[in-house]
C-alpha cells in the first residue's frame, strides 16, 4: 500500500518535471558556460516552453509560465514583466502553430522555433533599448538566438523520450 502511494507521488512529481525544471532554470539562470567562451549563451526556458506548449502538455499551465517569467526578470535584473511577455508570446506562437498544423514534423517545429525566438528576442531588445534605455550588445542576442536554435533539436529529442515515458 505504502509502495503504491510512493509510486503515485513519484509519478505525480515526474509529470510535473518540465515545470520544475523551468523554475530551476529561471532561478539558476544557468548557461553551462564554464569555459568562459565569448558570447556563448542559450535560452533554455525558451526551448522548454516552446516544446511543451507545442505539445499541449497537461501540467504546463500558462500561469506558471508567466510566474517563471517574473522570477527570471528578478534574477537577471530586467524590468519586471519582460520575460513573462516573452514566454507568453511563445505560448501564443505555439498555440497558433498547433492550430494550423495538420501533420507535425520536428524539422518544421525547429525552423518555426527559430522564427519565434528571433521575433521574441527582437521584441525584447526593442523594449529594453527603446523604453528602458538599456545598453545592449546585439551580437549577444544573435549568438544567443543561434545557440538556442541549435540546442533545440537536441533537447527536443530528450523531451520526446520523456513524453513517451509519461504516455506509457
Amino acid at each position: 500500500m505504502t509502495s503504491l502511494r510512493s509510486k503515485g507521488t513519484f509519478l505525480k512529481l515526474y509529470s510535473w518535471l518540465p515545470l520544475i525544471i523551468l523554475f530551476i532554470s529561471v532561478l539558476n539562470e544557468f548557461d553551462l558556460n564554464y569555459l568562459n567562451l565569448d558570447y556563448f549563451s542559450f535560452n533554455f526556458p525558451f526551448i522548454l516552453i516552446f516544446f511543451f506548449t507545442l505539445k499541449d502538455f497537461k501540467n504546463f499551465d500558462y500561469i506558471f509560465v508567466f510566474i517563471a517569467g517574473l522570477f527570471n526578470d528578478t534574477v537577471v535584473g530586467l524590468p519586471l514583466g519582460i520575460s513573462s511577455l516573452s514566454y507568453i508570446l511563445i505560448c501564443i506562437a505555439t498555440s497558433y502553430f498547433r492550430n494550423i498544423t495538420i501533420r507535425p514534423s520536428p524539422i518544421k517545429d525547429w525552423f518555426y522555433f527559430l522564427f519565434v525566438v528571433s521575433l521574441i528576442n527582437s521584441i525584447n531588445y526593442s523594449i529594453l533599448t527603446l523604453f528602458f534605455s538599456f545598453n545592449l550588445i546585439l551580437m549577444n542576442y544573435l549568438v544567443n538566438t543561434f545557440f538556442t536554435f541549435t540546442f533545440y533539436i537536441i533537447f527536443a529529442l530528450v523531451f520526446k523520450h520523456y513524453l513517451k515515458s509519461i504516455n506509457d
Binding site: D61, F66, G81, S84, L85, I127, F131
Partner: peptide, 20 residues
C-alpha cells in the same frame, strides 16, 4: 487545464512592464 487565456496573460505582462 489552463486557468487563464493567453490574451489575459499578455495584458497582465504589459501592465506589469508599465508599472515597473
Amino acid at each position: 487545464q489552463q486557468k487563464f487565456s493567453l490574451l489575459t496573460l499578455v495584458l497582465i505582462s504589459a501592465f506589469t512592464i508599465l508599472l515597473s
